[in-house]
């Protein structure tokens, strides 16, 4: 099994943290932003997990879920729901917000983009009395959400409620999480994501604007 990651790609934080937290043995290869490893995908993506069967996992959340699954922690309704929310709601806002912080220097606007989602998270945490999102123990949901929010909550000046901050610290204090963030961001915060964000935006604008050909 092999995990392909690239530096300065925020999606790689969760995969690296999940790998370390589950203790799954796996080779890691650092690839450039241009390198393509999944045969059927036309643009470069990472992280990618090459499975023992030779198939590729190209969704960061599915990679994390797989690592937890083979470590005896299968998906539940609760983890599924957090992962789906992260992929459909949180992730688009995070990317928009990171773009504003790292490429445009618009910190106030970036914080505004995150507000609704951070409120939802605060509200969800207030409805339950557990240390983590789904239970007293950490699950794949905590890793995935923590990693998604890390570049914004760690130093980009995005404010979160008391419960979110408490939860964010409980997850972030683990050395597995710190190492993952350090490997991807090199201590440079959202700045480290510039190249990734430029390419990501370019690919998107191109796809949206290109005439039908």
């Amino acid at each position: 099994m092999k995990l392909y990651i690239s530096e300065g790609n925020p999606h790689c934080i969760k995969a690296l943290a999940a790998l370390e937290l589950t203790g799954v043995k796996c080779e890691i290869e650092v690839i450039s932003h241009e390198e393509k490893v999944v045969p059927h995908i036309t643009h470069p993506v990472s992280p990618v997990l090459l499975l023992p069967s030779g198939q590729h996992l190209f969704s960061p959340n599915s990679i994390c879920q797989y690592l937890y699954d083979i470590s005896g922690q299968p998906a539940t309704d609760a983890t599924n729901q957090w992962l789906e929310w992260e992929a459909t709601n949180l992730q688009p806002a995070v990317l928009q917000s990171l773009h504003m912080v790292a490429l445009q220097g618009k910190r106030v606007e970036a914080a505004a983009v995150m507000k609704e989602h951070l409120n939802w998270l605060e509200q969800s945490l207030s409805k339950r009395n557990t240390a983590f999102l789904t239970a007293e123990e950490m699950s794949v949901a905590d890793v995935v959400l923590w990693a998604a929010l890390y570049p914004l909550l760690s130093d980009a000046g995005v404010e979160a409620g008391e419960l979110v901050r408490g939860w964010f610290q409980r997850v972030g204090v683990l050395s597995a999480c710190q190492t993952a963030a350090q490997t991807v961001l090199r201590g440079k915060g959202a700045e480290a994501l510039k190249t990734f964000l430029q390419k990501h935006t370019a690919a998107h604008t191109q796809r949206r604007d290109s005439p039908t050909n």
């Binding site: 599915s62 879920q65 797989y66 699954d69 992929a87 290109s210 039908t212």
Partner: peptide
């Protein structure tokens, strides 16, 4: 198997993140 479950989950996610949002060009 865990592998199959991950691949199934990946395509389910693909459905709600890519397919449901896509523009004509995408």
């Amino acid at each position: 198997s865990a592998e199959q479950r991950a691949i199934v989950q990946q395509w389910l996610e693909h459905r709600v993140t890519r397919l449901d949002n896509c523009s004509k060009e995408e």
